[in-house]
């Protein structure tokens, strides 16, 4: 495993022609039906919750690794997470990433998508100024906003494209051809962009390779996951965490279903079919 360990925060400064792909990932909450919310801020209580790699981020990482397989270069994952996030970042190295960065600081807690994207975008700008691509999952399974790729693009004033399924790099021209799929229109579109560009990967594309346990253990032993705090990043505390978040969760409530008739028929299927059709006719929703 020829993973190069980058030890300083100036890692990006000597970047040359090598394709550099950044894959920001999220520690998603595995069982979304058993979460605890803070009674005051209504934010998710992350302490004591086991973290897993957001499933769609694995498709994004696969897309990045396929580009690396084809064109060389390196793939770096990063994530804003509590200190316990080291383990799931080791999984990204187990899948094939060269190195990983854990962005962790109390000051980043309670962030909405604007503050999170600011933190992620500024980290990329500081640590990897010569990057070519930022690749993200289509959305997360726990909060499902799909905001992050566009917001990171906006902070960095770069073009972006969602739902990408395939990419073809031309390092000499510094361009990338991207194919994306718009599920609701049933349409594929092909674009050509100058790099750097920010993309999100369509969740039903690029089925991820397995996580190599050997590589994951290697990552732990060699310390391939680096921690970065705000001591290094020096972001204005007014722009991150709760204070850098314009939105607030004002109230939460249980989703209440519409009252239903709950008439249940058990017995001969023929009788059941007649009973159902009669009722649907009575409701005026099918014609006799």
């Amino acid at each position: 495993m020829g993973a190069t360990v980058i030890s300083s925060a100036n890692a990006g400064s000597n970047m040359g022609k090598e394709l550099t792909i950044i894959v920001p990932v999220k520690a998603a909450v595995p069982n979304i039906t058993a979460v605890r919310l803070d009674p005051v801020t209504h934010n998710l209580v992350r302490e004591g919750v086991p973290l897993m790699l957001n499933p769609y981020d694995r498709n994004a990482l696969e897309f990045a690794l396929r580009l690396k397989d084809k064109y060389g270069g390196r793939v770096i994952t990063l994530s804003m997470a509590p200190p316990s996030g080291k383990d799931f970042l080791e999984s990204t190295i187990g899948m094939g990433a060269d190195e990983a960065y854990l962005i962790t600081d109390r000051v980043f807690a309670g962030a909405d998508t604007l503050a999170t994207s600011y933190t992620v975008a500024m980290t990329i700008k500081k640590l990897f100024p010569g990057f070519n691509l930022v690749v993200m999952g289509e959305e997360t399974t726990d909060s499902t906003t799909a905001h992050m790729p566009a917001q990171v693009a906006s902070w960095l004033s770069l073009p972006y494209l969602y739902y990408v399924v395939d990419g073809e790099v031309n390092m000499e021209k510094g361009t990338i051809k991207l194919t994306r799929y718009l599920e609701d229109e049933g349409v594929y579109e092909e674009f050509e962009y100058n790099m750097p560009v920010i993309v999100s990967v369509y969740k039903d594309s690029n089925p991820p390779r397995d996580i190599s346990l050997n590589r994951k253990i290697q990552a732990k032993l060699s310390g391939l996951v680096k921690s970065v705090t705000n001591n290094e990043l020096k972001l204005d505390p007014l722009c991150v965490g709760l204070r850098g978040s314009p939105t607030i969760v004002a109230k939460i409530e249980d989703a209440k279903p519409i009252p239903r008739k709950k008439q249940i028929f058990k017995g001969d299927p023929r009788e059941a079919a007649k009973w159902l059709i009669e009722n649907l006719i009575k409701e005026g929703v099918i014609k006799p």
Partner: peptide, 15 residues
């Protein structure tokens, strides 16, 4: 809806 759809969150942007 959030966290799997069993909770409804009311979001506001007061400022």
């Amino acid at each position: 809806p959030t966290y799997g759809g069993n909770i409804l969150a009311h979001i506001r942007t007061p400022n």
